[in-house]
Nucleic acid binder design. Structure first.
Lengths: 336, 336
DNA sequence: TTGTACGCGTTATCAC
DNA sequence: GTGATAACGCGTACAA
């Protein structure tokens, strides 16, 4: 019976197979995955804990992971830490108790008190977007520093010299790496970063909006590097309210490459993260570790690519260029 | 041992309890949730299958469900159907095999061939956003028709008379209900809807962009009701490219109330769905059915509320009004 | 080729 | 108040 469903370790006579299948049909039998998991010691389930599901960047990242996991027949348990350390720990604990075969963690900013717990457990895990606070686990990240540098260099290439920086929380490593890249570019161009200003906030739209109003109102700057697209969208709105034109008065370049950047006005110039590749790499690294727990905890740094659009001063392409997803065909219904 | 951890059905002597706790500590014992689930016949896990995770509306809806489920100690298994019927069925099957205690389904457009399967299974389920194609299950929805009508009436109130409609796929019920509400409002105002045009596409930004270009280029319309915020954001971009001003030349009102609407330029006037309430109601209905599988498959229709902003011609409030989430405080770092 | 029995880690019942 | 044990449903080793 197990043998017929699973093409089991051994064969089964055609006549018996038919009899079994008939019984299955008649009884409406459904295999119980829980019992199977208990016996096999594998759940075919992976956990994913994210700082904030409502942030489109994490949403797009989650989707990429889901896609890669699905392709390998794994299902995803998703937890939303809501930027709360306690809640993050709760989810990690819950997932471990549920015997996930592996875990992805995008650490929320703050203490990450769940890391020791993870290390004690035998469950393989991988950090995403940010390096493991405690170390010891593989990580899959974007090349934050060089990306930020390239974005800033692009603004410099447009002749901008007073370039501000709006970034994420001060205790988040990638936020600071992006600030570092911005400094690198300015230093190399001989612009003194000390004349500039950095603003720190959360990674949401609202933070960008507030940062924009705080930093760009007085006309000191002719450009701004923003550490995330979400924030940049908020900056765009702030500029509009202040009557400052983008890109004429203030040019913008940002980071992440989320889908929404292709439809704003002007469309955002951004350093696009390779979402698909991030997801695939993360899953691959996790499977590596599941095979061999002592495998090298490799840190994968993936390159980001400049997508030049209107916000930096480049020609603004039609809406929806460089589509992240394939789009089904549309149907138009004429006048009635 | 089980008794000391669970405060089990019966008491345990203090001395024994201490001994057990010591052993737990020493052996690094972790309870196995899978074995527990097998024994208890409950996994404390709910499934959620969504048509398209990358659509911010579904992302926000998922988050609301996750929130409500978390509050009841349930964990969520999330599946992305990617608007593909086969994939939707695969996820439903997988979740049933994993013995989820209940399932939320936001049916993708199309055949929904997983419904018979769900009905055959004994697992309680609830449809969201759209009614169950096969019936028999509770549903939690927004008041699409009246909401669309209110939005259109608001545009009429601004003196607009030539109001187009951009909607979702023709085989999606809520899309058509919203078209229905638009027609209702026009009919009541004595405007002949036959002079108008309806455009159908998918629920994404790109579809709105294409619809906007197709319908609004020639100046026939002075307003448009758009069936989803995502599409409306695309319309906004299309108008900009066409050199048409919003709201002066064409006013916009849309539907859903996603967070992004508060930061576009102009900010979007929209019929906001009560996400938190939708999530709580959905979870409550599911728990009802888990208690009593024969409970009435109630259809909950929740009201939507008009959020008036700049796109319809109302005064445009500062960015980020009516915030959907509470935002942590920001920190500003002065000039360096 | 097929039937049978064991064990995965829990919880709950039973006899002590 | 406690210790032993059956059962959840599956996969598989072993005996037939």
């Amino acid at each position: 019976m197990s043998y017929v469903l699973n093409g089991g370790p051994r064969g089964v006579a055609p006549e018996t197979r038919a009899r079994v299948l008939a019984a299955i049909e008649q009884l409406g039998y459904r295999p119980n995955g829980i019992a199977r998991s208990l016996r096999m010691n594998r759940t075919m389930t992976l956990g994913l804990v994210v700082p904030d599901t409502s942030n489109p960047f994490f949403a797009q990242l989650s989707r990429a992971i889901e896609e890669a996991a699905f392709a390998q027949d794994y299902t995803l348990l998703i937890g939303n830490a809501a930027e709360d350390d306690e809640r993050q720990t709760t989810y990690v604990r819950t997932f471990l108790a549920r015997q996930v075969d592996g875990l992805f963690l995008v650490p929320a900013h703050g203490p990450a008190s769940c890391v020791p717990e993870l290390q004690r457990s035998a469950v393989p895990w991988v950090t995403l977007d940010r390096q493991s606070p405690g170390g010891g686990a593989p990580a899959v990240l974007a090349d934050n520093r060089n990306g930020a540098r390239a974005a800033t260099e692009h603004l410099l290439g447009h002749g901008r010299r007073s370039i501000a920086c709006i970034s994420g929380p001060e205790d988040v490593v990638p936020a600071n790496e992006r600030v570092g890249g911005w400094r690198d570019a300015l230093a190399e161009a001989g612009v003194r970063p000390s004349e500039m200003s950095v603003w720190h906030g959360t990674f949401g739209r609202r933070a960008g909006y507030l940062g924009g109003r705080a930093l760009l109102a007085d006309g000191r700057f002719d450009a701004v590097f923003v550490a995330s697209d979400e924030q940049a969208l908020g900056v765009l709105r702030a500029l509009q309210e202040l009557g400052i034109r983008c890109p004429e008065d203030v040019a913008i370049a940002s980071f992440d490459g989320i889908a929404a950047t292709a439809y704003s006005t002007p469309a955002l110039t951004t350093m696009a993260q390779p979402f698909g590749q991030l997801g695939q790499t993360a899953v691959a690294r996790l499977l590596d570790r599941m095979d061999d727990p002592d495998a090298d905890p490799h840190i994968s740094v993936l390159p980001v690519t400049l997508v030049a659009r209107g916000s930096c001063g480049c020609p603004d392409p039609p809406g929806g260029d460089a589509p992240a997803e394939t789009e089904p065909a549309e149907t138009a219904e004429g006048a009635q």
